[in-house]
């Protein structure tokens, strides 16, 4: 038990040290510049921010996560035996993910592995779709829309999100079902003779997921593009650049931090989404988050669920870091 206590309190400390080391490294390498945190906010406000964010980060985010990580390395035991002689660290939950058994490594657990990669792959796809939808809109809002138009657009974007996420998912289901409005319209207009199985083909899932996190993409993009000096766009045009060249070489490089933070948010949230896959997932599609959910609430195997959740989390973080590295962005930049 002593060991686990040290684990629980030692790791946050290690993370803090790592964080400061990282920031010091970026500062020394000249990646991050500008006045220091306390210089900008004043001592009192700065201290409050550090304490409040620190508390939030450690006790609400980090500690529960660490408890999950700790649990994921333990066997499933009845409550009476927890902390007993049988409660030893083990990799069996991770073994189960890979091989479908806590002991044997003879066969791969294709069902879960496939679901995992499908989740990652589709999340990437959803992120790209979201970017493609949001970029033109964000550019219009940030660079050419009048103040009145901007207000209307913002309202139209935000209002639908007053509706609960699960309700929205069910609405998509009703809309796309074989007797739904869209199929009725298609058949009524003579375009098809039989209802199209949108839900079975996962169209509903993709639509629901894309829509669910649209705002997470549009606002970072909007913020980033909004800070671009309009004269730069005009200067490029004046120098003879066609519109696509301006976007590719002037707007996108400027908006890179916003694109990165928007894509990170959408990717992470999509990969971890539960409601949309549960409600809209086709019968043939096994998404990863429902599997995790089942580990907890159907199999009542919390350690295994924890291990699955941890696998998803670490993979997503690693993926995001690799992508950021590939686009030569530092972690500090995406928060700009």
């Amino acid at each position: 038990m002593n060991g686990s206590l040290a684990f629980i309190f030692g790791l946050p400390l290690a993370v803090v040290v790592l964080f400061f080391a990282l920031s010091a490294y970026e500062r020394r390498r000249g990646i991050a510049t500008g006045p220091g945190f306390f210089q900008r906010n004043g001592l009192a406000v700065g201290l409050y921010l550090v304490l409040a964010v620190g508390f939030w980060a450690f006790f609400i985010i980090l500690l529960p996560q660490l408890a999950m990580v700790d649990m994921s390395f333990r066997p499933k035991l009845p409550p009476a035996q927890m902390g007993g002689p049988k409660d030893l660290y083990t990799l069996e939950n991770y073994r189960y993910f890979l091989f479908g058994s806590t002991t044997s490594t003879a066969e791969w657990n294709w069902l879960h592995i496939k679901a995992f990669f499908l989740t990652i792959g589709v999340s990437i796809l959803i992120t790209l779709i979201n970017f493609a939808i949001c970029y033109p809109l964000a550019f219009h809002m940030a660079q050419s829309a009048s103040a009145a138009r901007l207000r209307v657009l913002l309202l139209l974007l935000i209002l639908p999100y007053w509706v609960n996420e699960i309700l929205r998912a069910f609405a998509f289901r009703v809309l796309l079902s074989s007797g739904g409005i869209i199929n009725q319209l298609l058949m009524g207009s003579g375009l098809t003779h039989e209802p199209i199985d949108f839900l079975g083909a996962d169209v509903g899932l993709y639509m629901g997921l894309s829509y669910a996190y649209l705002l997470m993409m549009i606002f970072p993009l909007y913020n980033a593009i909004e800070s671009l000096d309009r004269n730069q766009v005009e200067a490029a045009r004046d120098l003879g650049a066609p519109w696509w060249h301006i976007h590719a070489f002037i707007v996108l490089p400027h908006a890179k931090p916003g694109i990165a933070s928007g894509c990170t948010l959408v990717f992470m949230l999509t990969a971890g989404a539960l409601a949309a896959p549960l409600v809209l997932g086709g019968p043939r599609t096994l998404w990863f988050t429902p599997i995790v959910y089942d580990r907890f609430y159907q199999a009542f195997n919390w350690p295994q669920g924890a291990a699955y959740a941890f696998i998803l989390l670490v993979s997503c973080i690693l993926f995001v870091l690799v992508v950021l590295k590939a686009f030569r962005l530092s972690l500090g930049e995406i928060t700009r």
Partner: peptide, 9 residues
């Protein structure tokens, strides 16, 4: 055109 704020990239 040379802009008032130059608009260098």
């Amino acid at each position: 055109l040379i802009f008032q704020n130059l608009a260098l990239f």
